[in-house]
Design a binder for these strands. Structure first.
Lengths: 206, 206
DNA sequence: ATTATCTATAGATCTATAGATAATGC
DNA sequence: ATTATCTATAGATCTATAGATAATGC
């Protein structure tokens, strides 16, 4: 059984990720998770004890994935800073495009249950803090080199995150209201990407 | 009883608005709504038949409030277009600041139940369509006058909406991760407002 | 007579667990 | 012997309604 070991456990995890991501904690059903995982409902409690415990593990994974992805985008290459930023914006945009449910999921769960983040607060804040420091150094240098205007690292990153994430947060609304009649999803998304790169570019201009 | 008429009905509506806004449809409890409204739970069904019907009315109100607010911000005064835009950004930002739960509420409910918007799709899309047309005319004129660069109305409005709404979508995360240790909420919010105005200003620059 | 309100409870759903049975590894 | 899985059901919670009682307006 070594071969099969944890197969069902993994199936439950996979089904749970999907269920929680799409419906949120409140909307998720452990019965639905078990069904989609192809196991009886009792197995879920056998491996994970409770809905809350199953959720917590998955939630932590997502948070670390998001933070890890963000902090890895700025690599101090020898490219001009403004080019580095544009590349980072593009990569970050594509990451969300590949995981379009993540922004709403993270925002929803932290908004409705702020206490959940306490578990990972310290890890995340130090990681993010260090990341801000790195970016700020690059900014200061580029500013000294007269390449860009002066700007706070957090401000710039918040701008980028806002524009990128909101594109996908708003997609269901966009679709529902008028998109399908006018232009295709993927075309609109590509348009937004180019627009965001342009906006950030102009924001950094002197 | 003329005086008291509908008092309890209004109390239920008020409590329901708060409950749905803060917890979403899935997280909301009709028992909780009745309790906060100071009535027995049966009253809720007496006036509104079902949780779904109670929700639908409230949801429609919020949607129309949001759309109505957005479309009223651009008033074709004789001020320079770029000044009009900055004023609109500022007013829109303040509107969300006064109703910080609305962005997540609207996004969450449409994402999890896209069919809900069908009811108001037509009204909203024509309203928004007309609004886009008005703004586009102002843009074209300002561009002809050499005041701004060329830009699509929808693109500009999506930029503004992204930056403004995301500020408040991300506040709980910001608070949870590090804000409280560094700066006060209201200071951060004011910083974001100024930053967004500046970003949009630069975006429109030739 | 009609409208508003309460008590009591049905009915549905969801999470969780107890206990029996089957499969695996030593 | 231990781990994995299933059946059956408990226990909690939530929405909804039936039916009785009180208040109001004509």
């Amino acid at each position: 059984m070594t071969k099969h070991r944890n197969n069902k456990e993994m199936a439950i995890l996979e089904a749970a990720r999907k269920e929680f991501l799409e419906k949120g904690y409140d909307g998720a059903r452990t019965t639905s998770i078990a069904k989609n995982a192809g196991v009886t409902h009792a197995m879920l409690h056998y491996y994970f004890k409770s809905k809350e415990k199953l959720f917590t593990g998955i939630f932590d994974d997502f948070i670390h994935q998001v933070v890890g992805n963000m902090t890895v985008l700025f690599n101090d290459s020898d490219k001009p800073f403004i080019q580095q930023v544009e590349d980072a914006v593009s990569l970050h945009f594509d990451f969300i495009k590949d995981n379009p449910h993540i922004p709403l999921f993270v925002i929803r769960e932290i908004s409705t249950h702020p206490e959940r983040i306490e578990l990972i607060k310290d890890t995340v804040s130090t990681t993010v803090g260090g990341f801000f420091g790195t970016v700020q150094k690059s900014i200061d240098q580029a500013y000294a080199n007269n390449e860009i205007c002066d700007i706070d690292a957090m401000t710039l990153l918040f701008d980028i995150l806002s524009l990128n994430a909101f594109t996908f947060l708003a997609m269901p609304i966009f679709n529902a209201v008028f998109a399908s009649q006018i232009i295709d999803d993927s075309i609109f998304i590509e348009m937004r990407k180019q627009e965001i790169i342009k906006t950030i570019h102009k924001r950094l201009a002197k």
